[in-house]
Design a binder for these strands. Structure first.
Lengths: 195, 195
DNA sequence: CGCAGCTTTGAACGGAGTCAAACTAAGTGG
DNA sequence: CCACTTAGTTTGACTCCGTTCAAAGCTGCG
């Protein structure tokens, strides 16, 4: 159980456990030597955290709770014990790391090649799809992260995030009241996201 | 043996073999549905290609030779056979995927948070370090990729790449004649790269 | 030689950043 | 319970970095 703003782990810390999110949400990010931050992911219940650092043995990212969050901690020792008994565990872990690589590739494409409109549309649809998979409403949800955090993640300023939200609202693509969002035209959002 | 411009593999193709580069160089990239491209890495002798796609079983990136390149192909079957005999192979693969995730995190930081100057300085120093590790000169080398490809990788236009090269040359940080580069002040470049 | 591709530089434009200010919601403590 | 504080959101005005468009120069190859 961690409160908003608390860290699950920090950069360079040895990896002792990995985390499964039960409730709440978490952001992960990397830091430059001079303190700049790039958020690399937002994580919701059902997702695993920390596996990406399992081979270097030290965390390369930091994880902070966006709200009160319940996590299930799995000690590395336990994981190793299982993987000796069941070799397919290693296959599973390869699969999870592969998925992470693909997610990162998508984010790089966004950061390197997309406009502000395309970035926010992509972001909202990605949230929508993850909620759909978990049987939450894919069109009406509450964002647990601030405009600032969205902007950081998407590589744009928080003001630009606000402006794009306003534009989308004026064009009837969505309705938003602070962090409450209702997607009104998924198809058109999809067209924008694809560029 | 592949010639400049030839593909080692393409997106969605099933993964039958992975590749070790012997000589030459290769770029890997992801594509959007509408054909935009983001280069995700340049690869030099000694590096492995294709492992990132081992779990989804289909390539998510494409790999193209930047020049005449010799690769050693390792069939997945062989890899699997070994990994049944030697479990530590799986650990090795986890390590390689972890490294790839860290590389991608660094690139995301660059794409999301760095200026054009910082991007090119970071890029040149990264090349420099990789050459140093392979016992090539870390200060004098020949780039195998075009300005256009550098720009695509760094998320800036080819013209901006040219302009930053010119700036750096005027400030005595490096000397460049087309693709031949000589780094003259690693320390100052490092300061720029850190931002 | 002549062409095609790559590189370089200039000029003008524009999207997003920055700075600033008004507004809102949510705490917090008296 | 309410005044006050604080964090977050929104909008406007201006600026600037990097893009785009255009043109000229260079290089290597057929």
């Amino acid at each position: 159980m961690v409160e908003r703003g608390e860290l699950l782990y920090r950069t360079n810390e040895p990896v002792r456990t990995i985390y499964a999110i039960r409730t709440g949400s978490v952001k992960t990010y990397v830091l430059t030597t001079n303190g700049r931050m790039q958020i690399t992911g937002f994580h919701i219940p059902g997702e695993l955290l920390g596996l990406g650092a399992i081979a270097p043995h030290n965390f390369t990212t930091e994880a902070m709770a966006l709200e009160t969050t319940m996590v299930c901690e799995v000690p590395i020792k336990v994981l190793e014990a299982y993987s000796r008994k069941i070799p397919s565990i290693c296959q599973q872990m390869l699969k999870i790391l592969s998925q992470k690589i693909r997610d990162n590739q998508e984010l790089m494409l966004l950061l390197g090649k997309k406009s502000a409109n395309e970035r926010l549309a992509t972001f909202l649809l990605s949230i929508s799809q993850r909620f759909r998979r978990r049987r939450y409403s894919p069109t009406e949800f509450n964002l647990s992260m601030s405009r600032n955090e969205i902007g950081n993640y998407l590589g744009i300023s928080e003001e630009t995030v606000c402006r794009v939200f306003s534009r989308f609202q004026n064009e009837g693509l969505l309705a938003t009241e602070r962090r409450q969002v209702q997607l009104l035209d998924l198809e058109r959002l999809d067209n924008i996201a694809r560029g």
